[in-house]
């Protein structure tokens, strides 16, 4: 029973992971860019939600859409000012640039807000609900539901809107897309901004259950890429599934071993998948 409880906890966290990783997957799929600032944007989202709550009493649950919108604009700006200039250059420079952006964001947060841990206390976070014999924290439950809504709407957007189809077109074949009249740069910008918005929105959802401080985002770079790799590169559905798998793995690790080793297991899993099944757990083997 306790193991089932661990799995449930894992699934709840995994839903939020899925949202974070989906942003990473989108950017990677469309731009072949690993955004090393992804975790930093998540941290920014948490701070925005934090001040939205403390200053304007905006509940992070419905505020996460506002945070997502704010981060979307920020992502757009970062793309046009910085990322755009290294598109088409080596991975080497692209990665260093996003790492530099991450350091700037973390450093700016340290300057503005100090390294203190901050948190908000929603009444929801103290409540526990039952699901049969299992129980869960209501705040986690609500975050999970919203994250799943976010992932689903993103999936539908990609599938049924013109822009979504264009984005997928570029992701599947960046060479051909320009010939079909899709403006790749514009699409790259939108995708990057969407990716940042996912990270930011997820940050808002994490706020009720986590502390926020400037370096809170750094493990999420690797975590989301673990998920992206698990789910097969660059697919939204894969990211959703990968997020759940990672969440459950962490839940079980915490239960059977120790809370402190969840990240070690994450990274070992990451290396193992990259080396043994680079096409992801579900992807077809590439030629």
């Amino acid at each position: 029973m306790a193991a089932l409880q661990a799995i449930l906890n894992g699934i709840l966290v995994g839903g939020i992971y899925a949202l974070i990783a989906m942003g990473m997957a989108l950017v990677f799929g469309v731009m072949r860019l690993v955004n090393f600032a992804h975790g930093a944007f998540l941290m920014v989202g948490m701070y925005v939600a934090y001040f939205g709550y403390t200053l304007f009493h905006i509940n992070p649950y419905w505020g996460c859409a506002l945070v997502g919108a704010a981060l979307f604009m920020m992502g757009m700006a970062v793309y046009w000012l910085l990322i755009r200039r290294v598109m088409g250059q080596s991975d080497f420079l692209q990665i260093l640039l996003t790492e530099g952006i991450a350091l700037c964001l973390v450093g700016a947060a340290q300057l503005l807000f100090t390294g203190d841990y901050r948190s908000i206390s929603l009444p929801l976070a103290d409540k526990t609900a039952n699901l049969g014999p299992l129980n869960f924290n209501v705040a986690y439950g609500v975050s999970f539901v919203i994250a799943v809504l976010g992932v689903t709407s993103m999936y539908l957007y990609m599938k049924y809107t013109e822009m979504g189809r264009a984005i997928r077109g570029v992701a599947q074949n960046p060479g051909v897309a320009p010939l079909m009249g899709i403006r790749v740069r514009w699409i790259s910008g939108i995708s990057f901004a969407f990716g940042v918005a996912c990270a930011g929105g997820a940050g808002a959802l994490l706020l009720p259950v986590f502390y926020v401080n400037p370096t809170i985002g750094s493990p999420y770079n690797l975590k989301s890429f673990v998920i992206v790799v698990l789910g097969g590169m660059g697919s939204v559905e894969g990211a959703a599934l990968g997020g759940l798998i990672l969440g459950v793995t962490e839940g079980l690790t915490a239960y059977y071993w120790s809370d402190s080793y969840t990240q070690v297991v994450d990274f070992v899993l990451f290396l193992a998948v990259l080396l043994l099944r680079p096409q992801g757990l579900f992807g077809k083997k590439a030629p």
């Binding site: 200039r85 260093l96 640039l97 991450a102 350091l103 340290q110 300057l111």
Partner: peptide
């Protein structure tokens, strides 16, 4: 004192963009 992370980040961005 508290801005060294920001400083390194900014430097990294500048080097990549203007002085690779």
């Amino acid at each position: 004192e508290r801005a060294h992370t920001f400083f390194y980040g900014l430097l990294l961005v500048l080097v990549v963009l203007f002085l690779p």
